[in-house]
Design a protein around this nucleic acid. Structure first.
Lengths: 194, 194
DNA sequence: CCTTTCACATACCGCTGGTATGCGAGTAAG
DNA sequence: CTTACTCGCATACCAGCGGTATGTGAAAGG
C-alpha cells in the first residue's frame, strides 16, 4: 500500500522539480535563486535540501527529465518507421522540432554543459536522445547502408549540428528556415550512404 | 605622445583580462570569484569595475579576444590555400584543431552561451571565426561548387558539428579520434558539392 | 500508547557580485 | 611653479546568494 508519507515526499519532489524546471527554462540557471524556487513550490529551503544535495543536483534531475522526454518523443516517432534509414531521418527531424522549444533549449542545450560540465552533460545526453542516434547509426553501418566508419565521432558531429541548428531556429526563425535546415541536414545524412 | 596615464590604464586592463582569461579557462566562469581575479592581477575590485561594468562584461571582453585569435588562426591557414574548396576544408580542420585547447573550450564553447545568452554569443561568433565559414560557403555556392541553398542554416549545422566534435575530442581523445572526426567531417563537406 | 523516524521548517553563516565614497598621483591652464 | 581639476584606482560597505545546523510535529512501527 502506498503510504501517505511516501506520497507527500513524492509530491514535494514533483513540485520542486516542476517549478524549478519552469524557472530554469524561462530565466536561466544562474538568474534563478533557490528562494524563488521554494516559494513557487510552496515549501522552504529545508525541503529542497532534503531532496537534493545542491542547486546543481536539482538542475541535473530536471535536465535528466527533459532529456528523457525528448528521447521518448524521438523514439516514438522513429519506431513508427519500419525502414532503418527512415527511422534515422525521422528521428533527426523529430529531434530538431522538439529541441526548438525554449525550455528545452535553455536547460538542455545552454545551461546543461555549463552547470554540469561537458562530460557529465554528455553522459546524460547519451542516456537520452543521444543513444538513439548512436544506435541508429550503428545499425545502419552494420546493415551496410552507411559507409563503415567509427560511429562515435559521427554521432557527435550530427548531434552538435542538430543542437546548434535548433538554437538558431528558435532564435531567428523565418518561415522557411526549418525546411531549409532539414533539407541541409538531409543532404548531410544522404552523404553517409554507401 | 603616449602619456603615462593611458599606459597605466591599458596595462591594468591587460592584466585583468589576462588573469581572468586564465582563471575562466581553468575553473569556469561561475567558479571564479572577482576577488580571485583582482588579486591575481595585482589590483582591487575598484580597478575592475572602473574598466568593466560587470563580471559578465569582463567575460565578454575575454571571449571576444579568444574568438578573434581563433578567427585569425583559421583565416591565416585558409589563406595559404588558393583553391576556394581547399580554403574551406583547411579552415575547418584548423578550427577543429584550435578548438581542442581547453581554454578555448571552456570560454568559447561551454560558458559563452550560458553567460552571455545564445544570441549574443552567436553575434561574437559571427564577428569571429563564424564569419569566415559563412563567407567561404557563400563563395563556393556562388562559384557553383556547392549546391545552391540557404547559407545560414548550413553554416549553423557545420559550426555546431565542429564545436561539438571539438569538445568530444578534448574529452576522450584516442589517438585516431581526430583523424576519424576529420574524415567524417570531410565526407559531410564533400556531400555539399554539386 | 509510546517511541522512533523522517519530511520539512526555522534560523543562521560565509561569501559573492556590486556600489558609494575617499584619495593621491597625473594633467592642463595661467 | 602653482593651482585647479581629472581620473584611475583603493577602501569600506551592503544585500542577497547557496549552503548548513538545528528544531519540530506528524506519521510509522512495535
Amino acid at each position: 500500500m502506498p503510504s501517505t508519507r511516501a506520497e507527500q515526499r513524492a509530491q514535494t519532489r514533483r513540485a520542486l522539480m516542476a517549478e524549478s524546471r519552469r524557472l530554469f527554462a524561462t530565466e536561466g540557471y544562474a538568474a534563478v535563486g533557490l528562494s524563488e524556487i521554494v516559494s513557487a513550490a510552496g515549501v522552504t529551503k529545508g525541503a529542497l535540501y532534503h531532496h537534493f544535495a545542491s542547486k546543481a543536483e536539482l538542475f541535473e534531475a530536471v535536465l535528466a527529465e527533459v532529456q528523457q522526454e525528448v528521447a521518448d518523443r524521438v523514439a516514438t516517432a522513429a519506431d513508427r518507421q519500419s525502414d532503418p534509414w527512415e527511422q534515422l531521418t525521422t528521428g533527426c527531424r523529430t529531434f530538431l522540432a522538439a529541441s526548438t522549444a525554449p525550455e528545452i533549449q535553455r536547460i538542455m542545450l545552454i545551461d546543461g554543459p555549463a552547470v554540469l560540465g561537458w562530460s557529465r552533460w554528455r553522459e546524460l545526453d547519451e542516456a537520452g536522445s543521444g543513444r538513439h542516434l548512436e544506435e541508429s547509426l550503428s545499425a545502419l553501418i552494420a546493415a551496410g547502408v552507411i559507409t563503415p566508419q567509427p560511429v562515435a565521432p559521427l554521432t557527435r558531429l550530427l548531434s552538435g549540428a542538430m543542437n546548434e541548428a535548433a538554437l538558431w531556429l528558435a532564435d531567428s526563425s523565418g518561415p522557411d528556415d526549418l525546411a531549409a535546415t532539414q533539407a541541409a541536414l538531409s543532404r548531410m545524412l544522404a552523404a553517409l550512404r554507401t
